[in-house]
Amino acid sequence: MKIALLGTRGIPASYSGFETCVEQLGQRLVQRGHEVTVYCRSHHITYEGSHYKGMRLVKLPTIANKYLDTMVHSLISSLHALSQGYDVGLYFIAGNSPVTWIPRLVGTKTILNVDGLDWKREKWPALARKYIQFAEFLATKLPNVYITDSHVVQGYYRDQYGDEPAYIPYGSDVEILPPAETLAQYGLQPGKYILFVGRLVPENCAHHLVEAFP
């Protein structure tokens, strides 16, 4: 199949979990014999090649603005996708839901991974939060399918909109290394520490771990 991955900053992954998901998922789809295209924001992705780990990169411009960056790029990418003959377009982030109907005009099936409840994040002003909530509703209507990687988000959509997205959890490849210099460097003992990996923002609740750790 011809598969497009849209709505993120692009790859090589250097920012968030969705970019990492695109890089990991895309290369696995390539290994299974699919043609994979990743749409990238030209101002963010400095990698010069046209392909990365078997995936074709389409670098398109956008408006480099906190509020317009994602939506404008996803719109331009969706219009570009109309002429590419994709079988499937996989979008990321609920805020992209308003454009997921565009590839459907030419028979491309669209999927949207809605992520978390982004409107709850303090970084967004009131108007942006209202837009994100409206986009959540559109996520239940405009793509062929929408999915989540969280049981909590799945329950939210069920309670809020009377509709339940499919739940597909993330996986990971973790190389097991014996405890040695790294732990010793920080004075840690095997099995007696907690590792938190994520951005230090309130909604990731790192402060709860600090408060709970004895």
Score class of each variant (00 low, 15 high):
A206C: 13
F137C: 08
I194D: 13
L79E: 01
A206E: 07
P202C: 03
L5Q: 03
Y193E: 13
S78N: 07
L29Y: 00
W101R: 07
V106W: 09
Y146D: 02
L90C: 05
T100M: 02
Y186L: 12
P178S: 09
S50W: 11
I102Q: 03
L25P: 04
G17A: 09
L79Y: 09
V72E: 02
S97G: 05
N113S: 13
R199L: 07
F134G: 06
Q154G: 13
H43Q: 10
Y52E: 04
L200P: 00
E164F: 08
V72W: 09
I45W: 04
F92R: 05
P190S: 11
G107V: 07
I176H: 14
I194G: 15
I93P: 00
G191A: 13
T20P: 02
Y67H: 06
G54S: 10
P202A: 09
W124N: 06
G49V: 12
F92W: 04
I194V: 15
L29K: 00
K2R: 11
L177A: 09
G198E: 07
Y67K: 10
V22F: 13
A184Y: 11
D118A: 12
G95R: 02
S150L: 14
N204H: 13
L138V: 04
N144D: 15
I111R: 01
Y146W: 02
V197W: 00
R121Y: 13
S42V: 11
Y86W: 03
P165C: 05
V210W: 13
V106E: 15
L127M: 08
T37V: 14
V88E: 02
Q160Y: 15
D163C: 15
Q27M: 08
V38S: 01
G89W: 07
G162I: 10
L6E: 03
G17L: 06
R121K: 11
S78Q: 08
A184L: 12
Y67P: 04
A184K: 14
I76F: 10
G198Y: 01
G95P: 11
V201N: 04
E211A: 02
Y15H: 11
G198R: 00
E203P: 06
P103T: 05
D69S: 12
L142P: 00
H34L: 00
G198I: 12
G10F: 01
E164R: 15
I3V: 01
P214C: 10
V153D: 09
K130C: 07
D69G: 04
R129A: 04
S77M: 01
I11F: 03
Y193R: 02
Y157C: 02
P190M: 12
R121I: 05
Y170D: 03
I176G: 14
I63A: 04
A166C: 10
A126G: 12
P190W: 08
T8W: 05
L183W: 13
I132F: 10
